[in-house]
Design a protein around this nucleic acid. Structure first.
Lengths: 227, 227
DNA sequence: GATTGACAGATTGTCTGATAATCTTTTTAA
DNA sequence: TTAAAAAGATTATCAGACAATCTGTCAATC
């Protein structure tokens, strides 16, 4: 019975739309880390009541992308150097795990999808269009997370990605990084296709460790946060 | 409904207390998985307004211990057998990591605290007092998580523990399990004290895997809920 | 008898206004 | 100059209202 006749049903509740809008606004840099988010301003900006804004805030707070202080209100979360380190460390752990599970338990269809994502990623890189590259990267990671066949791993990695976004740092735009990135991603896909779990895990970990190296180096240079 | 869950309204924010109270109420089985949480009833029960209840709901929803459906309201989350498997799998991964980090980077003070927790755990086991045992177990895990020196690992493990609590299953109360549990915990502490990272990781993983085995076996027997 | 449609009741979703609590800044007093 | 007090701003919470949506009931229809 379930055919593809779904009505768009413009997102379930207003609150969810507010969440999505704000998440996007933060991820895109419209709101910067450390910036205060004043309730009244958000209400006017979004054209919704305080209820919706406040409830959305609680959600974003739980996700860690905003931090709110009692009686002072929410602020876009900032990430210290140490936290960034920790973030990349646990991301490497979880993505390594996801890669391993994918290699060992992923379906043939999963692998086909992954290969397609790799091809698109290469094409996007060659096209030089930033947005397309970002989409391709996200598609790849999404596929990888699904391949883990573990809802919780997916949730946690999604949360980590959101928080890493706060760094507003695309390691891929660093000179020479993109080429390496492509090669690393190919290694991951190959290891998975060969059903080599440990190698897939190592490849994933290596990929993230490299990205971390670039990102942390960048953070160290572009001096610290005065807050 | 009873009013035996009254909140003492003092410092912090009311909303946070509501969160804590409800989290506790769910963890203790006062509210059971699948049970609906009607807004108005919660307001009366807690003696607070809808604002505080609704915002607390958003937080608990983000934590995964309740699930809410648009225009129908929240229910206490249920966990399927497959989800329980995944939960224990990723918990083993993260706790293994925490153990390894502890062994490799924990301070002497951390180790002292951990040893104390082990001693208390043994004493609690001998005393036969359930509440004391639970406290001791929590203290041990808290110490372990802190030892990881990684805020995100701590957050994720806390979230996982909360969700495992939904199973309302204390593997330790299974016949013969407690003795094994103590032995396993000692192994963990010893590996850490000897600064043997890989061994600590293995010990942590083994401990969780054993608990998972017991829990999953129990779940399989006590037939699946059809919801 | 089973399905459909209309209706009523219940609950959530959202808005608004009001008040208390708390933080921040400015002003005043010593 | 520093400390205390007052003023201003913002959040935290409550209460009431209304709309939107879900659920169950019951009669009408085939």
């Amino acid at each position: 019975m379930q055919t593809d006749l779904q009505i768009s049903r413009q997102s379930a509740t207003l609150r969810v739309k507010v969440e999505e809008t704000l998440r996007q606004a933060i991820a895109s840099g419209r709101f910067k880390p450390g910036q205060r988010l004043v309730e009244r301003e958000l209400c006017e900006m979004l054209g919704v009541g305080r209820t919706s804004v406040r409830e959305a805030m609680r959600q974003l707070e739980a996700e860690g992308i905003i931090t709110s202080y009692p009686h002072k209100g929410p602020v876009v979360s900032t990430i210290t150097y140490e936290e960034a380190q920790q973030l990349y460390t646990v991301r490497a752990l979880l993505e390594g795990f996801a890669g391993q599970q994918f290699a060992e338990h992923g379906t043939a269809a999963d692998i086909t999808t992954l290969q397609a994502a790799v091809v698109e990623f290469e094409a996007a890189a060659e096209s030089g269009v930033g947005a397309r590259l970002i989409d391709a990267k996200n598609a790849f990671y999404n596929c990888l997370m699904d391949g883990s066949k573990n809802v919780f791993v997916r949730q946690m990695l999604t949360a980590l990605h959101n928080r890493i976004n706060l760094l507003r740092m695309t390691t891929m735009t660093q000179p020479g990084r993109l080429a390496h990135s492509i090669a690393e991603i190919k290694d991951i896909a190959n290891a998975i296709q060969n059903r080599n779990g440990p190698l897939a895990a190592a490849a994933c970990k290596f990929h993230i460790d490299q990205a971390a190296k670039v990102a942390l180096e960048y953070l160290r240079k572009n001096a610290a946060p005065e807050s």
